[in-house]
Amino acid sequence: MMNATCRNRQMSPRNSIWIICLLFLLTHTPPLVVSSVAQTRIEFNDSTRAKTTKPNPLTFTASTDQRFFFFSDTRNDNGRRVPVSVYGIRAGFLFPPNHERPALQGGRSASFKAGAGFYFINQHIDRPGLLPNTSESVTRHLRIATVYYERYWLRRKAFEISTPIEFGYGHSRYERNDEQAQDSEVARGIFLPLGVGVSAAYQFPNIRWLRPFHWFGLNILTGYRFILKKDIPASQINYTGFYISVGPSFFLENLTADVKQWRQRRKQKKK
């Protein structure tokens, strides 16, 4: 009787329901746990990927800049334009790319460069009649403040190509001195230049025993400058024309990177 009773209990509908529920839990719970672990791994991988693609901080950069401007009012006896040396300095920041650009694989991580510059010119113009109602030569002093945006198109190891766009505010002062008549005149004006160019730079390779060598390089810059507003409209003075720059270049970002790396190594040695 007891065995029959036990058999009847095992075969009862209530026990069958419990057994079915237990089998369901055993067969369906592990996939849920695995899926939750996989989801956690995916979220971890996504967070890791977000950290690797995070933009780098801005890098400060500065350099001297010597250019040769071809002014329309500065010509030789044959009527050809004579280059005028312009000295200046500019400083700004390197902005890292927000997305991957295959052409930017060398040098500092930068998509473009932006900043400000300052230039000055002191020139004696031996060409009478530039200023209105004058027949003597003049001495010109120009001071130009600019803001620039320079887009990088190619950065392969030590070689880079970019296109700078500049807009400036210039102040001019012309001094006319007539020693025989003991007469002098000073004319002042304001002009607005806009320039578009193409720049190519090469950084010297990095040598272990001579680290400062890769702080320097060569730079070639050429472009065209437009004058949106002339300083003295009634004169023959006109700054519109080509400009070119060829010479050595100093890369401040390479210097700061070496100094930062040297400080980190020094801290590690102390620890």
Rank of each mutant, 00 (worst) to 15 (best):
I190N: 13
V186K: 03
N177G: 04
Q203N: 12
I190T: 15
L194A: 11
Q180H: 04
Q203C: 08
D178Y: 12
Q182Y: 06
R208I: 11
I190H: 15
L192F: 14
V186R: 08
W209K: 05
A181R: 09
R188K: 15
Q182F: 05
N177Y: 14
D183Y: 15
L192Y: 14
F191Q: 08
Q182M: 05
N206K: 11
V198F: 13
V186A: 01
S199Y: 02
V186G: 01
A201D: 04
G195F: 02
V196R: 13
G197Q: 06
E179L: 12
I190G: 08
V186T: 12
A187G: 09
Q182V: 04
P193I: 10
A201K: 10
A181V: 00
P193V: 07
A200M: 14
E185I: 02
L194G: 07
W209D: 02
S184V: 06
F191G: 04
F191Y: 15
R188H: 13
A201F: 00
L210V: 05
V186F: 02
Q180F: 08
E179D: 13
R188V: 13
P193Y: 01
E179H: 12
S184A: 11
N206H: 10
G189R: 11
V198Y: 05
Q182K: 09
L194K: 02
L194Q: 07
L192D: 13
F204R: 05
R208Q: 10
N206A: 05
D178T: 05
R188A: 10
A181F: 06
Q180N: 06
V198C: 12
W209I: 01
I190V: 15
A187F: 07
S184E: 08
N177S: 10
I190D: 14
N206D: 06
A200E: 04
G197T: 04
A181T: 03
P205S: 01
V198W: 05
G195H: 04
D178F: 09
I190P: 07
D183F: 15
F204G: 00
S199D: 09
W209A: 01
F204H: 05
Q180Y: 08
P205V: 01
G197Y: 04
N206T: 03
G189Y: 11
V198L: 12
I190F: 15
L210S: 02
D178G: 06
L194N: 07
R188E: 15
N177T: 09
V198Q: 08
Q203T: 10
V186C: 00
V196T: 11
Q180E: 05
G197H: 11
D183E: 11
G189S: 15
D178K: 04
F204L: 10
L192T: 12
D183L: 13
D178R: 09
L210A: 06
Y202S: 04
R188F: 07
L210R: 03
V196G: 10
R188N: 14
